[in-house]
Design a protein around this nucleic acid. Sequence first.
DNA 1: TCAAAAGTGTTATCCTTACACCCATGT
DNA 2: ACATGGGTGTAAGGATAACACTTTTGA
Lengths: 322, 322
Amino acid sequence: MPREVTVGLHATIVAVTGAEPRVLTVSGGADDGAPALPFGPLDPDRHRTLELGLRAWVRGQTGKDLAHVEQLYTFGDRDRGGAADERARVIAVAYLALVRERHLAAGHPAAWQAVYRFLPWEDRRGGEPALLRDRIRPALDAWIAAAPAGAARRERRGRADITFGSGAAPWDAERVLDRYELLYEAGLVAEARRGGGPGDGGAASDPAGFGAPLALDHRRILATALGRLRGKLKYRPLVFELLPEAFTLLQLQRTVETLAGVRLHKQNFRRLVERGALVEGTGRVEPATGGRPAKLFRFRREVQHERPAPGVGLPGLPVADS
Amino acid sequence: MPREVTVGLHATIVAVTGAEPRVLTVSGGADDGAPALPFGPLDPDRHRTLELGLRAWVRGQTGKDLAHVEQLYTFGDRDRGGAADERARVIAVAYLALVRERHLAAGHPAAWQAVYRFLPWEDRRGGEPALLRDRIRPALDAWIAAAPAGAARRERRGRADITFGSGAAPWDAERVLDRYELLYEAGLVAEARRGGGPGDGGAASDPAGFGAPLALDHRRILATALGRLRGKLKYRPLVFELLPEAFTLLQLQRTVETLAGVRLHKQNFRRLVERGALVEGTGRVEPATGGRPAKLFRFRREVQHERPAPGVGLPGLPVADS
DNA sequence: TCAAAAGTGTTATCCTTACACCCATGT
DNA sequence: ACATGGGTGTAAGGATAACACTTTTGA
């Protein structure tokens, strides 16, 4: 009976440091030199639940204890991005974890990497990035034109318009996975060229400009995680898991912007936070802001027991405020 | 190396017939007489992807081909609701599927059951059900009072208020899983009493009035599915997967209400549908409505390629309209 | 003619969006 | 004094929620 498989537990561990979202990676993926997300097999004897198994593995690989953890998705295609292993079937259960500190215990081969190194088109804080305008959109246009005229081509154009935004459809920050999968199908990310087909083996750097690759299908997992995180920010107070105990309102705003990949409107953001009664003043101020000292706030943990859906909310498209 | 496990694929197959959401069950769960969701192990040799494996199993057990399918969650606790199997570790990957037809191929031991038989407190179309008022809320109050006074008791009360709605916090239709888990922890559902601890074995009927049980942790899966479905209705045009090709606006509204478990406001619902350009007239009418004949509409599949988040939307709490 | 359901018009209210402006501190 | 970021008031537009009312059929 070949009805047995191995279950891998994969963690996307996100922190925000210095106005930049970062993800924890371990070096040396299985197939090529690309970094990988921390992962390890479920040990059915020792791990009573999947989440406990994940925590154990992460501690072993990175020396970190995780705070907020949530399950993302389970990937089970036979040829998951590269390294088709003929011997054993491997299922990947992916998790998202948020942490505050970025200190790593010594002696662990883990490193923080900017999330937008792997998904550069997702960072629109400075407007539409040049990469999108100069390289991705033209490449997508070529991919669209490569389809036979008619329904197939219209289908491709519609998908590209919806996922990457264009004219009628605005940019939807949450569609991170849709965008990655479109690029994958269009053959524009390195991973699409290694896996099943005759490939180039993938490079850890990013010569083509479509983002640095990760091992296996870990970039897909990262895209899933970022999309989920962006979506949840709207109705759950997750940002506070990433901030220090006390923070200024601008710090809070910058952290949301960093994850959402979009600039927000200052007053409206503050009104939202205020209306939700998400924070309370500490009485203290942060003097070293470069301008007038800012009041320090703390998260009101009680809101989770008061209102049904507290979150800081990403409005439709609130353009910059400078 | 005992690092191998079995992966089960579980399907929550939902249809709406006669203003009632129904779920497909197969008879005879493993442990007791309770019905089960269709499921079967992943066959690593024959199933190239998890979803294909699921489709194969469902076809075998029910003779159905699934249309819309999405992954829900992966459950992996060692003692998943009852039947703690010491020999092999079993992981359950749960899926939600929507189907239109309710015909079953002959010779299959599957049956449609009303979803609200298993989660009766979720149906508020006729206002707050008596069961909630007369039995569940008092039982929850007892559970709250059973905690030591102070923080622990406040914690319980806060959770009950948020999940079941009360005063400040209104009923949130999406928190189906939260409600089930709260009842589970409070020991109010049959499943909580069989599993790990010294239990009663569970009954397929519902003597206590807290909903009929399902085999294993299948009621948890059903709760996950209903919650996800309710959430997605808001921003994805999923209802149309459950309706016939042509339908009246009231049929559409009733189907949404049925899933949401809440009555909606007629005009506002129609305005929403219209503004979203979700449907178009067919020119035909349905004469047998009991009153004035109603125009028949069809879903405009194009919207999925036009707008980023089309859905019929469940407003905050739009009380009844007749 | 009456019940039952289809279908429409209109208004008050709130939230979103966007404008412009003042305040406190370091250099 | 001036640059930098902190912090606020207010008004226009649109979406939501709720009101009541007319129309068309079958019994």
